[in-house]
Amino acid sequence: MFKTTLSIIALTAGSAAMAADNPMVGGAEMYADKNIVENAVNSEDHTTLVKLVKSAGLVETLSGEGPFTVFAPTNEAFTKLPAGTVETVTQPENKEMLTQVLTCHVVAANAMSDAIAGMIADDGGDHPVETVGGCVLSAKMDGDTITLTDENGRTANVTIADVKQSNGVIHVIDGVILPKQ
């Protein structure tokens, strides 16, 4: 009994230590030893994103080995889209469009904010970011904040950076990135 209790305490302390390096997101601890999907489902600020990832059939992909950098829009970011947009893209006939929108938020690399800021500086203040979905984002610095502008001129700010995952990193953003229209 005593040994079992110590093991549980040690596991809990170990998990807390793994989360201590990560910021809280949506009221939930984010664990570096869990993958992107395992962490995202716990964030109260990302319920819309999780619903869309499930609708697009991307759960298995984003649970995979990676590495992935995900620019994760909050629920509030989705409310900035025209009324009915989220409902429209979740219709079965729009699955391809939804998949492209979501994969325009994903880069096939593990890019922490200091690396992104370095690339922006190396490129004279504007770094092109190619996404899995075929979008090219313009990454810039606004003071200490990384901004991403899509091909339509929509800008999103990184509000929480460097949320480490077992298969990459999440950067929370306040806007939705859309493919070129």
Results as ranks from 00 to 15, higher is better:
Leu148Arg: 07
Asp122Thr: 12
Pro179Thr: 05
Gly26Ala: 06
Ser43Glu: 09
Glu93Trp: 05
Phe68Val: 10
Phe71Pro: 05
Glu87Ser: 11
Val163Gly: 00
Tyr31Phe: 15
Asp142Leu: 11
Val41His: 07
Phe2Ala: 13
Gly134Met: 04
Thr131Ala: 04
Val163Leu: 08
Val107Trp: 08
Ser43His: 13
Thr4Ile: 11
Asp122Glu: 15
Gly168Ala: 09
Val107Arg: 08
Gly134Ala: 02
Lys95Tyr: 03
Met97Tyr: 06
Thr4Gln: 10
Asn94Gln: 14
Ser138Pro: 02
Gly64Phe: 12
Ala10Gln: 13
Thr149Ile: 01
Pro92Cys: 03
Asp123Lys: 15
Lys95Ile: 06
Ala19Cys: 13
Asn35Ile: 09
Ile146Glu: 00
Phe68Lys: 06
Glu96Trp: 02
Ile170His: 04
Leu49Pro: 07
Ala108Ile: 06
Lys164Leu: 14
Ile9Leu: 14
Ser43Ala: 15
Lys164Glu: 15
Met141Trp: 07
Thr85Leu: 01
Val37Ser: 03
Thr74Asp: 01
Val132Thr: 02
Thr99Leu: 00
Pro67Asp: 05
His171Tyr: 11
Val89Thr: 04
Ile173Gly: 00
Val25Tyr: 05
His171Glu: 08
Ile8Arg: 12
Thr145Cys: 02
Val176Lys: 02
Leu98Ser: 01
Glu29Thr: 13
Ala32Tyr: 04
Ser138Gly: 03
Asn152Ser: 02
Tyr31Ile: 10
Glu93Met: 07
Val53Met: 00
Gly124Gln: 06
Pro128Phe: 07
Val89Ser: 00
Gly27Trp: 04
Val169Met: 06
Leu62Thr: 05
